[in-house]
Design a protein around this nucleic acid. Sequence first.
DNA 1: GATGAATGAGGATTCATTCAT
DNA 2: TATGAATGAATCCTCATTCAT
Lengths: 240, 240, 240, 240
Amino acid sequence: MPPTSLPPTASVGTKRERRKEARPGELLEAALDLFVEKGFAATRVDEVAARAGVSKGTLFLYFPSKEELFKAVVRQNIAGRFEEWRDELDSFVGTTSDLLRYCYQVWWERIGATKASGITKLMFSEAQNFPEITEFYQQEVILPGQALIRRIVERGIERGEFRPVPLDYIVHVVLAPMIFLMMWKHSVGACIPDSLGLRPELYIDAQIDNVLNGLLVRPDPSSPVPSPSHTFSAPPSRGS
Amino acid sequence: MPPTSLPPTASVGTKRERRKEARPGELLEAALDLFVEKGFAATRVDEVAARAGVSKGTLFLYFPSKEELFKAVVRQNIAGRFEEWRDELDSFVGTTSDLLRYCYQVWWERIGATKASGITKLMFSEAQNFPEITEFYQQEVILPGQALIRRIVERGIERGEFRPVPLDYIVHVVLAPMIFLMMWKHSVGACIPDSLGLRPELYIDAQIDNVLNGLLVRPDPSSPVPSPSHTFSAPPSRGS
Amino acid sequence: MPPTSLPPTASVGTKRERRKEARPGELLEAALDLFVEKGFAATRVDEVAARAGVSKGTLFLYFPSKEELFKAVVRQNIAGRFEEWRDELDSFVGTTSDLLRYCYQVWWERIGATKASGITKLMFSEAQNFPEITEFYQQEVILPGQALIRRIVERGIERGEFRPVPLDYIVHVVLAPMIFLMMWKHSVGACIPDSLGLRPELYIDAQIDNVLNGLLVRPDPSSPVPSPSHTFSAPPSRGS
Amino acid sequence: MPPTSLPPTASVGTKRERRKEARPGELLEAALDLFVEKGFAATRVDEVAARAGVSKGTLFLYFPSKEELFKAVVRQNIAGRFEEWRDELDSFVGTTSDLLRYCYQVWWERIGATKASGITKLMFSEAQNFPEITEFYQQEVILPGQALIRRIVERGIERGEFRPVPLDYIVHVVLAPMIFLMMWKHSVGACIPDSLGLRPELYIDAQIDNVLNGLLVRPDPSSPVPSPSHTFSAPPSRGS
DNA sequence: GATGAATGAGGATTCATTCAT
DNA sequence: TATGAATGAATCCTCATTCAT
């Protein structure tokens, strides 16, 4: 392929055009940060624009109103990753105990430890102000998430690894600690860092141990859960 | 009963004076409702005043600013009930397992199921906007609450009922599900009632079972926790 | 009636209360002036408030939006005076020629020469931006006004004073000059005063003469209309 | 035909160049429409550009500001046609009565019924916002127009056809109905079509009849004006 | 004490104008 | 030349706070 024949327009476009395509994403990211930190009403659109490096007017070029910006922030950050996870889950080879542990870890690496976790805090804070978005969140995040957990627990029961627990509440037992962690990280935890000495990885390990203890058919009585002594790939020194 | 022996604050004074004394409380209650529902910034002081049945001007007679109103709302609702609880705990006679169960139930009856739970949601939502109050909350609520739980677990370990688990994270294991429940109740749960079929009492039972499973030295292998099949005194039909 | 027994509250109320009642009127007057002068879009609500002697916020205490202020301005200034005029007309004693002349004069004194005439200019300028109000204006002003004129001409024909002209267009012949005068006064005439030497009273006389000339059965051939040599009660030297 | 001999402005140039030359005209036409319909302040330059089929930036290539665009719209549409009309008038053969009638008709065909009439509405609406342009309009349109009418009436008087009326106001008697018709057409008439049954041609006939009645030395007493029973060349069925 | 009319700083949104491409 | 993304001053409107009654 001769280099000279490369069509000049095939490169991603002019600097300006590239900015134009990048703008919405930059704005959404800035908005996510600020909405999570201060809430919807307390966030000024000027701030969002400034953080995205544009002027106030530019924001309205991409989003017709502050409220639509909010909706876009939520929508963008809950782009259904559940199919992908479900596939990962279905093709997992190993004990369900390891699968559940893997799930917690992956969730923390991809969601909990990233900005995306802010959406959860945001939704809990603003749910009553945006019922429409809340409904959407329920359909797109909560229900699929619960289904995923239920599927894992069912796998464990089917394979004789887990006790035949009632499924309806076990999903909450599994999920509640994760959600709490996200809320904590984006609220009290952001204000008073390390005040509790709450290090996410250790917190997660403890929760996994506890959950598996309740689920496993025959936990080792001496060490209740065969804890793999914390094998996160996320940097273990950073908690929030 | 002779009227003169009545305690002076009991009934003396004109209706107006009694109103006057009741005013701050009515305003605080109205403010709590609205702050929890909509957040601090999205709540209008007119609304608060209207819900308390007074005019906007009157509100500023009792609270110098909206922000001070907010602080007062938080302060009022976390008036240290911990001493009382600690006494209750210290005088408890019975297994630590029952004590923990009793704690969950009492907490739900007195906090979780009441308006007071809204403060938790409020603090998580507004923590970063009011770091000063967050610090206060941390000192007055979070740390005492954790100490209480830690004390219970220690009791169990000392008495040989619980396994000698590391204490630092067990408090989170115990508390996180409760906090999650409050958040849920005041956000998504308020928007989409019963959508998950999350009935608080059953949810709490499941969490107790799970926690005790991880703590008890010798859980019954067939039914891992001697679940008392739900003995709430709160009406079991109402979930929120 | 003893003077001391006058109820103290019968006086119009406190200064503040009187202001409150006066405010809407003052705002409407200020708004009328500015809307007529600059048009709806070019008028700033701050200007309206300033001219009424209040702050911007106060305006929105009385009118929920600039658009509602506009509607109120139009509505207020077309309060149906037509019934009163119709009564005046029906009880008029004298020739229809004198009646028509009287009508022109009264119209000029009460509408044309006053601020109320601004509404006509405003409606013509903004009709297409406010179709709803235009429809209202049509029903409440244009049609009743035409009916009034038609009634006068019919009176003249019935009494044998006027020729049996077709009525459908004679109303326009009578009205168009008056409307033109109002438009002129509030636009070009306000910019270039007296540039044309268009003195309203003389203009009106000329139009009356012309109209009557077309209507009268037997106009005096030498002096086509028995012009009463201008007997306005309005100060004849100032036209606008 | 040698290309070099072609007149440079006649037809040479690419399509683009022709477009380029047409641009200002297209923009002016679009601007006229919108200014007349909505007023200056309520018209967005984007709309003007869009209606002319160009981008917003292009508009500013041809007109340095919205205000200059406005001025250009007015100027373009009052390009002195008065010389041409004056010549037509001077060479007219026939009674002055016919001349006046001819004038009304020609005016309606060339101005009243066309977009150009919008300028009149525009000027009346915006006069006070653009005094400079108003002065220009006065000089270029109003005064020449009045002179034309005055010239016609003088002709009638000189030839003994018209009574020796005072000239100063007769011009208003002649012009006011025409101006009213344009205003009507572009405001209420555009909103509530045919609501009055005001058909321009009939309206004009009625006005001519009325005016001539006041002017003619010896009107036919039975049919006061020798009305030529409507001989418009414009399609009589459509009025606006 | 209680009211609610008045205020005006502050915030969301618009839109004429600029300018890099 | 033409574009349309970007700008930010200007504008409508809100709402916490004040204060005369």
